[in-house]
């Protein structure tokens, strides 16, 4: 009676199949990178988060298939890509869904920028510090936990459009700043 239902996934069979410490560390360390990888393909952060969670489920279930010492991200990205395709299928009716060619192109082109992720984050950090206080506060509000893209403009006491415009302007400032910083870096 203490046995779980027969349908229980293999993940809980006990000690022998629990992911190793190393695996969990890799798993955890690559969450951000995977999220960004998926986001580039799906475009919307909520979709990306969902697909990431699905990817995590699969990674945990199949953790034994990962060969230690090999490229973890490459392994994970395969699973993630597959989950992205599945997510697209589920959203067949969604008018806001990218075509498969689009996915292929971005999947390839996002790899190199992701390799520079640490540089990009360092650059972003410096660029955020350079913002005017007012702008930085606005960006913080926009990206506060739980916030969605469609901001409730009344919270800011300004017309929605002007808020969006400001955020767009600040994001572009950050983008140009990051690009300048990356260009100044010696090529890796």
């Amino acid at each position: 009676m203490t046995q779980p239902p027969a349908t229980a996934p293999s993940g809980r069979d006990g000690a022998s199949t629990a992911p190793s410490d190393d695996f969990v560390q890799l798993f955890t360390r690559h969450q951000r990178r995977l999220y960004l990888f998926i986001l580039a393909q799906l475009g919307r952060s909520q979709d990306a988060e969902e697909a990431l969670q699905e990817t995590n489920v699969v990674m945990l279930a199949k953790h034994q298939q990962f060969v230690p010492g090999t490229n973890f991200f490459a392994w994970a990205a395969q699973i993630a890509h597959y989950e992205v395709l599945k997510s697209r299928q589920r959203k067949r009716r969604d008018r806001l869904r990218f075509q498969e060619e689009f996915l292929q192109a971005t999947t390839e082109d996002v790899q190199a920028p992701l390799d520079d992720l640490d540089l990009r984050r360092a650059a972003l950090r410096q660029c955020l510090a350079k913002l005017r206080d007012k702008d930085r506060q606005l960006i913080e509000k926009r990206y506060r936990p739980g916030a969605v893209g469609r901001m409730e403009a009344e919270h800011l006491g300004r017309p929605a459009n002007s808020v969006y415009q400001s955020i767009g302007r600040i994001r572009r400032t950050l983008l140009e700043c990051i690009r300048r910083q990356l260009a100044a870096q010696p090529q890796s």
Binding site: L36, A40, S45, T106, Y143, R179
Partner: peptide
């Protein structure tokens, strides 16, 4: 891609 990575990093 640059823009989405920026957006994603801020979000994450």
């Amino acid at each position: 891609i640059d823009y989405l990575l920026l957006h994603g990093c801020l979000h994450w």
